[in-house]
Design a protein around this nucleic acid. Structure first.
Lengths: 122, 122
DNA sequence: GCTTGACCTGGAGCGCGCTCCAGGGTCTTC
DNA sequence: GAAGACCCTGGAGCGCGCTCCAGGTCAAGC
């Protein structure tokens, strides 16, 4: 008996909240490692794949671009000088912190307007 | 004597950090009120215009889209039911807060990786 | 054996937010 | 009066991040 392992792309889409197209796109762009294929050439996602996709999705949601994530992926997958990796990680982190400051500023602006106009619409 | 008031588009660009093209685009899109013109049809930005552009820029940096900002602008400029305005403001605020949570999650992920690989690259 | 359904590939298309460009005008400086 | 700086308009172009589509393979169910 041949046990089929891992998830199909449809299942992976359900599990991650991404579309199948986005999953294929991420693979083409090198954001997720090459996904294993079954006898028919269909993708089979392992638990590890799904976990990694979760990380990628989290960083995407925070605004990191595709190029950054490709870099992130290749740097964390074995190659890449450790120093380069560390600088990269710290730089992105700093950017995210800056972004959070923008966000806080914007929230403050909205709060000002809300206070001015009255949150109850009065 | 005719005193020329306000800033030219070039000065406004310098002051706001936007490009002249972006300023014209924002006006076309209704994100900044119609800007006054001098005798030659050249734009003259008042201090109020610049202040408003500052607010718009702040919200743009936080990720609000052009359509949202147009809505924001028209809602805050006289018309617009107060209730509608309040809901709009509160809804956007909630979105920004959610966005900050994404950001925090992403920072945590990066921190995990940084801790794992060692921030010093060792 | 024919439909249905899940998947494949390669490539075109799209919405957003600008950015760039052609073609033209006015004012100042040499 | 020629050159250069600054501005105008309308419209095309662009990079990003998908999304959609055509055309095809394979497997299971009726």
């Amino acid at each position: 008996m041949t046990v089929i392992q891992g998830s199909s792309i449809g299942e992976a889409a359900d599990a991650t909240g991404l579309t199948e197209d986005a999953l294929r796109y991420y693979e083409r762009e090198g954001l997720v490692g090459p996904i294993a294929r079954d006898a028919f050439g269909h993708r089979r996602y392992t638990e590890q794949d799904l976990a990694w996709i979760g990380i990628v999705t989290c960083l995407r949601d925070a605004g990191l671009g595709i190029a950054d994530l490709r870099r992130f992926t290749t740097l964390l997958h074995a190659d890449g000088e450790p120093t380069e990796r560390a600088t990269f990680l710290l730089r992105r982190r700093a950017e995210l912190v800056r972004q959070r400051e923008s966000l806080d500023a914007a929230i403050t602006v909205l709060d000002g307007k809300i206070a001015y106009y009255g949150a109850d619409g009065a």
